[in-house]
């Protein structure tokens, strides 16, 4: 699965860029976007920041909102449906990677 994620770290550059990860996961595993991000963080790149503190994981708190393939969704409930996926922050007030104000 090809996963494109917008990254931003002001210690590296003042502009965001898109990083592409090749993730060895089949889409029929019923992974949510949050599962996918956790997989990348745990197995590929532990510098990736996404909303991951005090999370409910069940669509309760509504704080993990992201832009996935151009649509605003909750990362914890949205199932990964294609072999390629684009994950962007919900707005352009960037703090770090997918984290915004």
């Amino acid at each position: 699965m090809i996963v494109k994620i917008q990254r931003f770290d002001e210690m590296i550059s003042d502009k965001p860029y898109v990083e592409t990860y090749n993730v060895p996961i089949e889409k029929n595993n019923r992974f949510t976007v949050l599962d996918l991000l956790r997989y990348i963080e745990e197995n590929i790149d532990n510098t990736l920041s996404y909303y991951n503190h005090s999370t409910c994981n069940h669509g309760i708190c509504g704080r993990c909102l992201l832009k996935v393939d151009g649509k605003n969704v909750l990362a914890c409930t949205h199932l990964v449906q294609n072999d390629e996926i684009e994950i962007f922050p919900k707005n352009d007030k960037l703090i770090k990677d997918l984290i915004t104000k």
């Binding site: 770290d9 920041s49 503190h53 984290i99």
Partner: peptide, 12 residues
């Protein structure tokens, strides 16, 4: 790994 203190979940 990441040295940025902003939303650094490795640190937290």
């Amino acid at each position: 790994t990441s040295k940025s203190k902003k939303y650094n979940m490795e640190w937290i």
